[in-house]
Amino acid sequence: MMKTAESSRIYGLVAEFDSSEALLKAAEQVRDAGYTATDAFSPIPVHGLTDALGVRPSRLSSLVLMGGLTGACVGLGLQAWVSILAYPHIISGKPLFSWPSFFPVVFECTVLFAAGSAVFGMLIRNRLPQPYHPVFSTPHFEKATTDGFFLCIQANDPKYDGQETMAFLKGLRAIEVTEVERHPDDEDKS
C-alpha cells in the first residue's frame, strides 16, 4: 500500500546532462533499455533526438489532412449553396455552378482548415497551454532554456523502479538525477 502511494506521488526521474551529445547518447541507451514513457528538454533542437527517444511518428499529419479535406468541402459547399440555391444569379453568362471561379476559395479554405487543425491539434495533443508541469521543480530546470539538457523517465513507465532507474540514469554520465514529485506542495505538507 505504501509503495502505491509513494509511486503515485512521484512524477518521475529527471537527469541533467551538460551537452546535447551526452543527452543524445543517454536517450539512446534509455530507449534501448526499454523505457517508453520518456521526455527530453533542451534549449536547442537536437537532431536525431526524437529517433533516439523512440518517439512514434506523430498522428497530427492525418488530422491535418482531414482538416484540409474538410476545408475543401466547406469551401466548395458554401459557394455551391450560395450561387445555386441561395442567390441563383447568372453572372456574365456563366453557369450557376461555375467551378473554375470556386477554386481560389476552395484552396484558401483548405489551407485555413489544415493550418487550424495543425495549430489546435498540436496544442490539444500536447495538453497546452500548461502553466505548471512537475518537471519544473527540477533543480536548475530553468537551464533548459540556456545551456542545460534534461532527460525525464516518468514513474508511470512499466519498467520504472525508483532505485534501479535512478542508478541506471546515474550511470549515463548525468550531472545530477532528481526525483520529481507530482505536486511540489506535497513536500511542504509532509
Binding site: 453568362g93 456563366k94 473554375p100 471561379s101 477554386f103
Partner: peptide, 12 residues
C-alpha cells in the same frame, strides 16, 4: 497554369 486559365475564363 490554373491562374492563367482562371483569368482568361473570367475575362471571357
Amino acid at each position: 497554369t490554373f491562374g492563367q486559365f482562371l483569368i482568361i475564363w473570367s475575362g471571357n
